[in-house]
Design a protein around this nucleic acid. Structure first.
Length: 596
RNA sequence: GGUCCCGUAGUUCAAUGGAUAGAAUAGAAGUUUCCUAAACUUUAGAUACAAGUUCGAUUCUUGUCGGGACUACCA
């Protein structure tokens, strides 16, 4: 039974019976009663005073009395100002709890038959991943898992940007400076090796520009005519023509990068069902340009370039094909959108991409909808905010990027130091301890990046390391470890805390009831998280749950409790909290330890 | 210049148009004969500014100030 729906239904009939007025149940909203007041659900009376023609207090009193009489689960009410607070029977909550404990599919909503693709990560193969990518990857992974738990059929996709002028830049610098360096010979992860030459390219390129400017050349001209830039452009053309030497070098360097990425992805704990490579897709979309011209969605200018006019939608005219017939970025994005649909017949397609590309995706989606694509309505840009440093935006050329591999390692190292300082590794083998540090360090990092609303930009201060106390991953992990210890002990002494052992239980405490209410909210939060594509909803919820549990833990004894039913209930309650923490954290890609 | 996003305790984050704006951290004061003190309890501290809509505004509208992004026949 959905208690909120039932309450709303009864309130609606209260209006009919008391005031002869029809109010649709959809127009009646309940909210959880604030902590400082007595009650479970609150009905706000202000909007209905015109209907009742009574004071807020009197309106509340009458509706409350009606509910108490007509709906046995409502055991009491109070009216404060314009707020009607309703209290539900304790037996109702106990019933909710036992049903929850017996539900083997708790936290997994039934399949809804919808297939959705989530594209995330989408790295460039000319440099290693950095902090911004961490937010992207954790978000993409968590959103995918949340959608799965909501009953969607999810395909995780990664569109790798493995070609283009920026890739050629790394290759040019490599050819000039590397002396055949390999990841093995240089002792450098493949993606870091590519990144090194990308940076070296930029250094030399700047030097060359300066020289040209000293020689009297205009700054803009110098950018175009610096020897290495010319070489990179020439190399791009050679690559597109399939020049064997260039292609061989490209393959070699990319293979190094992929080996590096794989290591990084493994540590991040993310995975993909489908890889797309731009070297396969960059020519797609030209036929869509033709189609768009035929349908009158696009138009051609005198020089042969093709445009879309989005001024009616409040946007600009946008180029979709160059005058020389070559593609621009959006051309291949159109093609890839079709390709994804052809591959998987998805009804929704989510792009996890930073908000700097808001405009690009608005334009892309507008185009696909104008072209009448069946998946047009399901296109969604999960636009997340940048991760800023105290100094501002990260810039790879200025050396202010926070490297993903480095940061993950630092987090794990910090976890190690912290744990050892607390002397919490008694009884751990060295291997077990390392696994724990990994869980804690990665848990702290992931939670830090996921607890914030994805849409908002957030700040990362490298000077202050990410916390392990308070509103953090380890706090929630710690709660789970504490409960695990309780369950171990309960099993050891052979305690029965199955649903059957709770028969006849009554008179539970405030904190215990709060925990049931919170546990009951899990699936609601899960739905909201999916609707809003916001793992932060799950993260904040798990923190609230853990916080409440820790209060319970400090307040109430378990093994010295003498009433058998109450003892069993507290163990069962603990078990259910642990279970919820575990499945919820798993959606965020965070593992929880049994001991810490 | 144009378009868009954002301004909440010292700091990092919360708050479907609803009650006395919540947490965490840093600050102050406590809690361990008792299931893990990475915890718990108490305390102090914030809606940039100005109008408007509303019974009621952190939330919606407008303006001012401050921060950021986008605005290439680049990717």
């Amino acid at each position: 039974m959905d208690i909120e729906k039932e309450l709303v239904r009864h309130i609606s009939s209260a209006f009919k019976s008391l005031f002869s007025h029809h109010v649709a149940p959809e127009d009646l909203a309940l909210q959880p009663t604030r902590k400082e007041f007595e009650g479970n659900y609150t009905f706000v009376l202000f909007p209905f005073l015109k209907v009742t023609r009574l004071s807020p207090e009197e309106s509340g009193r009458q509706i409350g009395a009606y509910l108490q009489q007509q709906f046995p689960l409502v055991t009491g009410f109070n009216v404060i100002k314009g707020f009607l607070n309703l209290s539900l029977d304790e037996a109702y909550w106990l019933n909710v709890f036992t049903e929850m404990v017996q539900n083997t599919r708790f936290g997994q909503l039934s399949a809804n038959g919808e297939r959705v693709m989530v594209e995330y990560s989408s790295p460039n193969t000319n440099k290693p991943l950095h902090l911004g990518h961490l937010r992207n990857n954790f978000l993409g992974y968590a959103v995918s898992e949340i959608l799965k738990a909501n009953g969607f059929d999810v395909i995780k996709a990664n569109l790798v940007n493995d070609r283009g002028i920026h890739i050629c830049k790394s290759m040019v610098a490599y050819r000039h400076l590397a002396n055949g360096e390999t990841p093995e010979s240089g002792g450098l992860k493949g993606d870091h090796l590519a990144g090194k030459y990308y940076v070296l390219f930029d250094k030399e390129y700047k030097k060359q520009q300066d020289e040209l400017v000293r020689g009297g050349m205009d700054k803009e001209e110098a950018k175009k005519h610096a020897p290495w830039m010319l070489e990179a452009q020439k190399m791009l053309i050679s690559w597109e023509q399939g020049d064997p030497d260039i292609v061989a070098l490209w393959k070699t360097m990319n293979a190094w990068v992929y080996a590096g990425f794989e290591e990084t992805y493994r540590r991040m704990g993310v995975d993909f069902d489908k890889m797309y490579y731009e070297s396969d897709t960059y020519l797609l979309g030209k036929d869509i340009v033709t189609e768009g011209l035929e349908k009158g969605v696009f138009f051609k200018k005198e020089n042969g370039s093709v445009w879309v006019d989005l001024t009616a939608e409040g946007q600009d005219e946008k180029l979709v094909l160059r005058g020389d017939g070559t593609s621009v970025y959006i051309t291949q994005d159109m093609g890839t959108a079709d390709l994804k649909y052809a591959d998987y017949q998805i009804s929704r397609s989510v792009y996890v991409v930073g908000n700097e590309q808001d405009y690009h995706f608005e334009v892309l989606f507008n185009i696909m909808r104008k072209l009448g694509r069946p998946y047009g309505a399901g296109l969604y840009h999960l636009s997340y905010g940048m991760v800023d440093l105290p100094s501002g935006k990260m810039k790879s050329r200025e050396g202010t990027v926070v490297d993903a591999d480095d940061l993950m390692q630092e987090m794990v190292d910090t976890a190690r130091v912290h744990t050892q300082e607390l002397g919490k590794i008694d009884g751990f083998t060295e291997e077990e301890a390392e696994i724990l540090y990994e869980k804690l360090g990665m848990g702290a990092l992931k939670y830090f990046l996921l607890k914030v609303d994805p849409k908002k930009r957030m700040l990362f201060n490298p000077e202050e390391s990410i916390e392990f106390q308070g509103n953090t991953g380890p706090f929630i992990q710690y709660t789970h470890a504490r409960i695990s210890a309780i369950l171990r002990k309960a099993d050891q002494i052979g305690l029965d805390y199955t649903a059957g052992s709770l028969q006849g239980l009554s008179a539970i405490g405030e904190t215990e009831k709060n925990l049931i209410v919170l546990l009951h909210e899990y699936e609601k939060k899960l739905k909201i998280a999916a609707e809003e594509y916001a793992p932060s909803v799950v993260a904040q919820y798990l923190f609230d749950l853990s916080k409440e549990y820790n209060r319970f833990y400090a307040e109430l004894p378990i093994f010295s409790e003498t009433k058998g039913q109450l003892q069993a209930f507290r163990v069962a309650l603990s078990m259910q909290v642990a279970k919820t923490i575990k499945i919820g954290m798993k959606l965020l890609g965070i593992h929880v330890p049994e001991k810490m």
